[in-house]
């Protein structure tokens, strides 16, 4: 029984981790309508910077948030401005897909060039110390991630719901042309949203770096799961991404324990394919978004 509880808790904590990675992805998709295949590499970049700041300056990894988050915002905004925006009017999907795939490839290999194939371990400052909760235990850092994910979801929801800019962002997401007719500067909203999504993954990077060794391909590892989460939660839905992440975290943890750790990925992606094919609006999506269906 304790084992089962522990497996469940591990799953929830993993879910929190997936959530914080996926939130930025779903935000960008929901507003800009672009699938950012380089999202994982944004995470990787953020983790490397966190590692650099922590090791070179000897600071607590969480302190690097003041540099990493603005830096990632800038990276996201620049990506939108320089790479995606010129392609927004393209007739074929393939140019946008290749643009972010190209960015992803370039970033992975740039990291290889700079940091080599070695693994970078960010000092964890006690974040890997377990806390006992009754019969089960959880890493301090994991718990912080979980809490941060919840706060991020709520904060984003409040921002989108109540602020003038938030409303403009939702307007652009729901009907770009009509938003333009209201006087909304749509390109600027896109840049802001892409930056915001990247900033979210920057926060994720800071929180994840002390727990996971950083390497050039760490992004691929996380982002494929993040895609699963985003599709499961309903594309563009932030609460959906959170609950989708919990589901995937649990599935991952349970299948890893009961089916075998080498097959858990197959289970997760199997679910992904089923959702994509059977219910592309996601488990929590209110309705079909016609943009990606025939």
């Amino acid at each position: 029984m304790t084992t089962f509880l522990q497996v469940l808790l591990n799953g929830l904590m993993l879910g929190g981790l997936f959530a914080i990675v996926a939130i930025g992805l779903t935000l960008i998709f929901g507003i800009v309508k672009v699938v950012n295949f380089a999202h994982g590499e944004f995470l990787m970049a953020g983790m490397f910077v966190t590692w650099l700041i922590t090791t070179r300056l000897g600071l607590h990894p969480y302190a690097s948030v003041i540099i990493v988050v603005p830096m990632m915002f800038l990276l996201g905004a620049l990506t939108q401005r320089l790479l995606i925006q010129p392609l927004m009017s393209a007739e074929d999907d393939h140019v946008q897909i290749f643009a972010t795939v190209g960015l992803s490839t370039a970033m992975i290999n740039l990291a290889l060039l700079i940091f080599g194939a070695d693994i970078a371990n960010t000092p964890n400052f006690g974040l890997r110390t377990p806390i006992e909760i009754g019969p089960v235990r959880v890493l301090t850092g994991q718990l912080y991630i979980f809490i941060a994910a919840i706060i991020l979801v709520i904060a984003l929801q409040l921002f989108l719901k109540n602020s003038q800019t938030g409303r403009a962002i939702r307007a652009v997401a729901q009907h770009r042309v009509a938003a333009e007719l209201m006087g909304v500067n749509v390109p600027r909203i896109y840049i802001l949203s892409f930056g915001l999504g990247a900033a979210c993954v920057g926060l994720a990077a800071v929180l994840i770096a002390p727990l996971y060794p950083t390497s050039s391909n760490i992004g691929t590892y996380f982002v494929l799961t993040a895609f699963v989460v985003v599709v499961l939660g309903g594309l563009g839905s932030i609460p959906g991404a959170f609950f989708g992440a919990l589901v995937i975290g649990l599935v991952d943890s349970l299948s890893g324990f009961y089916i075998g750790s080498d097959l858990r990925e197959a289970v997760v992606f199997g679910i992904f394919l089923l959702i994509l094919i059977l219910k592309p609006s996601g488990l929590f999506g209110k309705r079909m978004t016609l943009s990606h269906l025939s």
């Binding site: 003038q164 409303r167 403009a168 939702r170 307007a171 729901q174 009907h175 042309v177 009509a178 938003a179 007719l181 209201m182 006087g183 909304v184 209110k286």
Partner: peptide, 20 residues
């Protein structure tokens, strides 16, 4: 029409006042 489908009517009207 081109309303914002997932916003309330009030929010739609608020969007009308976006211009400075």
């Amino acid at each position: 029409r081109q309303l914002f489908p997932d916003m309330t009517v009030r929010e739609n009207l608020q969007m009308g006042t976006y211009r400075k």
